[in-house]
Amino acid sequence: MVKFSISRFILMAAIVIGVIVLVPTIKQITQQRAMTSAYELLTDPFLQFPTKDSVRVVWFTEFPGSRHTVTYGTSSYRKATATTTKLSRTREDQKSRVGNQTEDAQLYQKPIMRDIWRHEAIVTGLTPGLAVPYQVTSVKENGQFVSSKLFSLSALPNPETPQKILLTSDHQLMPMTAANLQKVVDTVGQIDGVFYVGDLVNIPDRASEWFDDNRGGAFFPCLQGRANYQLEKNGVKTTYHGGEIIQNAPIFPVVGNHEVMGRFSMEKDLNSQFGDPFPRAAAQAIYQQKAEHLNPDNDPNYYQAWLKNNTYNTDTYNEIFSLPNGKPYYAVTFGDVRLVVLYITNIWRTYS
């Protein structure tokens, strides 16, 4: 009887100590002055490319803002400052399903640029195998703080540590994507890593396909548990929200043919541009014939921009995700898994 009481006392003491340690940190992280809803952020944060003591944290906003930071830690908290860049080719068009546009050309008669900012911070000082809470905060131009919920991050897993890895591809706003990802979380629980084998969206320069398509099944909402996609079966309607996955587990993406845009235009709809790639060699031959007229000063930057705009590019994919050494191909070790990512996508579209 005495032994049981002592054991119970020790257990209760351990719980109390744990609460004393954790509560101040969580309170410090969440007490952001003038905090607003996380959904003023365009996305929740997501994780990429952990190392033995760090991980990258990325999120998006529709305002440039300032003081974009990640707050993280357990017994004490630290801050990491983000670097901000603006996406250069994200647009909406007459075929977008965004905002109040539910049919073609209700709001947009041709492509328009959509301003989106990307924030990336490198969180350091991590210990393999130890998850820590984190939260991102962005400050708007009016001084208002906008923060995410608390999530968890960690460094690379140690070898010989069991991992639950989600191998997936071809989400492309498909009807079952949100339901399938919700089922992953319901049945498997927390995922440790996501290996995404290409074809993330349909039209990569259409911003709403990544962030907020009004049908409820955009790329990031589905992988962050913020989707709102409704399915009907036998007269019963069910709304699926996807899964809160990449806020807590790193995603390793691969270029598929749906990450490749064709020739650039501010007149043709984005579907037409996606279906209009052109071989680089053929474009170079055309350029050489017209070089004196197109680029009389022989500006190399103009030449590179012209070549890209008149052939194909993966710029939006490259700007959304962190890529090791800036290359679309890479190899990493994740626990006991060696992941080798190739850049061998076939555009699958006939040029004319």
Rank of each mutant, 00 (worst) to 15 (best):
A80W: 07
L153H: 05
Q172N: 05
F9G: 08
L47D: 00
P111Q: 08
T102F: 13
G262L: 10
K233N: 15
I286M: 12
P50C: 00
H68P: 05
V23G: 06
L166V: 04
L107M: 10
P328Q: 01
V255F: 14
Q106D: 11
T161H: 14
A179C: 11
D212S: 12
S138W: 01
G129N: 09
F9L: 11
T124E: 14
P128C: 13
E319W: 02
P133W: 03
M35P: 01
L167P: 04
N142M: 02
S208M: 06
Q172C: 04
L342E: 04
F334V: 12
E267D: 12
K233S: 15
T102H: 15
P328V: 03
R226C: 07
G198S: 04
R33C: 07
Y317C: 00
K110R: 15
L150V: 14
T71S: 11
G125L: 09
G262S: 10
D170L: 00
I10F: 09
I10D: 03
T239R: 07
R280P: 05
L294R: 01
H119Q: 10
Q288S: 13
G65S: 08
T127G: 03
T124A: 11
Q172H: 10
S66D: 10
R78D: 07
G242T: 01
P24H: 13
W210M: 04
L339S: 00
P111Y: 14
Q48W: 01
G99T: 14
L181A: 10
D205R: 08
E160A: 15
H68G: 14
Q304P: 05
E259N: 09
Y302W: 14
K149T: 03
A291R: 15
V19C: 11
V136W: 00
Q230F: 09
Q94W: 06
R215I: 12
F334D: 06
A82Q: 02
I17P: 00
Q190T: 12
I203R: 05
H241D: 03
S208R: 08
T43E: 01
M176E: 03
V254W: 06
D315K: 12
F334W: 12
K327L: 12
F195S: 08
F334P: 02
E120W: 05
R33M: 04
W59Y: 14
L87V: 04
T333N: 12
P300G: 07
Y77G: 01
T84E: 05
D44Y: 11
K308L: 02
R280S: 07
H258Y: 04
V254T: 15
E244A: 11
L223T: 09
Q106G: 04
G216Y: 06
Q304F: 10
P50M: 03
Y343P: 05
Y312R: 10
E103L: 10
Q230E: 09
I320W: 03
Q230R: 14
N214A: 05
G18E: 06
G143C: 02
S7Y: 06
L22K: 06
V23M: 15
W306H: 06
V255N: 07
L41A: 00
E259P: 04
E120L: 08
F211R: 00
I320L: 13
